[in-house]
Design a protein around this nucleic acid. Structure first.
Length: 480
DNA sequence: TGCGGTTTGGT
DNA sequence: CCAAACCGC
């Protein structure tokens, strides 16, 4: 038992089932809690010209909620704004704690930050205790018999499921040790910065009605549980409420991943199984990136490293603004920019369109998603973009090219999703809404959707773009 | 979570 | 003759 500990909250903004907090409370007589608005991360966002960011607001409000919950248990949350690599060691020193506890973060930038924190702490004889919390299995726990990471998701998922036992899902209880909180010295800040102080303007997050904080995550989970059995069939339809809506909460740790897996296992069904499979995909990509940090910017397949994509500024602009002329692509992109979310079916179609139909570098698309996605996660985003671009680990075969019109007909037959984000298609009937360019001029007038005026003509012809992509990708694939 | 061709098994 | 299954890119 050590005398005192500091728990550093990062992307784990909850109190329940929290590995680092639980371990600290069971190891130290006095426990302090801190959250740092990391100026390195925030200024990087501002540096690329962001004036608003829904995630910063989500984080701010979730930290506020965390502080409320802590105070209700007679605890307190120290709140700092600065470079975490410097403020954490200096806070540890001011509080004279024996150790800092944090849940391990596997992203390359977080790894180097945490190494710097560890170095600084060690110089003063302190330690950084890192715990497993964000995943069920870390990168060395699920590997093939040759000691290397699995290159096929199916093999990885099979072992993941075989290995899973009750011990892996145990709750990291904190509620039984709430008497151990230490009151921070009065001169330490416990006030939240304002959005303006953090350097951001207000976004439309409040209008979107996304439940925030650990209570918000719990609310969404309870909303999903009765729908979970239908997940396998309903998740593919972007016009339906079939997905869990939990991705942002998984990203910020306002819900525990162990709790989610427990929920899936306690309610066996096709839907629960399909949902668990998606959670395993997440861990697969986390594991891959942890093994190979360069996958954040380089494709897994060597043959595509240094591959020259097309330089098509106009095409990229049309894609970003949802003006490609393909309704499923445009609806997805406009949903992304307007709400910070995009249904997964649309993500696949949009990613495929950029990398195959336009032959634009998947990294440009990855960066655009990074800028806008509320649930943005480096490992999942890079992994899925590489999958869609057919340059990744266990990627989609290069010859499988989504037809945006067919995807639209199959997964949004009534056009509900399309019309929600494309008001110019409001009067276009179902049989034409997936391919409005096929309407006659008379039909265009009658439905108040003149192609080229109210809604763009397709910027590329599907058939021609498909053949161009096939020959370009085939030449690379054959050369390796 | 492709597409366009051929095979197959039913009528 | 039809549609589902199957095959290779």
């Amino acid at each position: 038992m050590i005398e005192s500990a500091l728990v550093w909250f990062r992307r784990d903004l909850r109190l329940s089932d929290h590995a680092a907090l639980s371990l600290a409370l069971h190891s130290a007589r006095r426990v302090y809690c801190v959250f740092v608005f990391d100026s390195d991360i925030l200024s990087a966002l501002v540096g690329v010209g962001q004036t608003y960011d829904r995630r910063v607001e989500f984080m701010l409000e979730s930290v506020r909620a965390l502080r409320v919950t802590l105070r209700a248990l007679n605890g307190e949350l120290i709140i700092l704004h600065g470079k975490a690599a410097m403020t954490i060691p200096s806070l540890a020193s001011r509080l004279s704690v024996d150790a800092v506890f944090a849940n391990r973060d596997y992203e390359p930038d977080a790894q180097s930050r945490d190494r710097a924190v560890l170095d600084a702490l060690s110089k003063d004889g302190r330690t950084l205790v890192e715990t497993k919390d964000h995943v069920i299995f870390e990168r060395h726990e699920i590997i093939s018999t040759d000691g290397l990471p699995f290159r096929r998701f199916s093999a990885y998922a099979r072992m993941w499921r075989q290995r899973l036992g009750v011990d892996d899902l145990g709750e990291h209880v904190v509620e039984d040790e709430v008497t151990r909180w230490a009151a921070p010295p009065p001169h330490l800040a416990t006030e939240l910065p304002t959005l303006t102080q953090l350097g951001f303007a207000q976004s439309n997050l409040a209008e979107l009605g996304i439940p925030i904080g650990a209570a918000g995550g719990e609310l969404l989970l309870r909303n999903f549980l009765p729908r979970m059995a239908d997940y396998a069939s309903s998740r593919d339809f972007p016009g339906q409420d079939g997905t869990s809506q939990l991705s942002m909460h998984i990203r910020f740790g306002t819900v525990s991943i162990r709790r989610l897996v427990r929920c899936a296992r306690e309610r066996p069904s096709m839907g629960a199984d399909a949902w668990l499979q998606e959670l395993i995909w997440r861990e697969y990509f986390q594991m891959l990136l942890a093994h190979q940090p360069e996958l954040a910017t380089e494709p897994f397949l060597q043959a595509f490293r240094g591959w020259r994509y097309l330089d098509d500024a106009a095409g990229f602009e049309a894609w970003c603004t949802g003006q490609t002329g393909y309704p499923m692509v445009d609806a997805g992109m406009r949903q992304l920019v307007q709400t910070g979310f995009m249904h997964n079916r649309a993500r696949m179609v949009c990613a495929s369109f950029l990398s195959k139909h336009l032959l634009i570098d998947w990294r440009l698309g990855e960066r655009f998603f990074a800028r806008h996605l509320n649930d943005y996660d480096l490992a999942s985003n890079c992994g899925n973009w590489q999958w869609a671009a057919s340059v990744g680990c266990d990627a989609q075969p290069y010859f499988r090219i989504f037809n945006p019109e067919v995807q639209s007909r199959r997964f949004d037959p009534e056009g509900h999703y399309l019309r929600r984000y494309l008001p110019e298609l409001a009067d276009v009937p179902n049989d034409a809404v997936h391919a409005p360019w096929k309407m006659s001029r008379n039909q265009q007038s009658a439905t108040r959707c003149l192609i080229g005026r109210d809604y763009p003509a397709p910027i590329v012809d599907h058939q021609a773009a498909r053949e161009r992509a096939l020959s370009a990708l085939a030449s690379v694939s054959k050369s390796r």
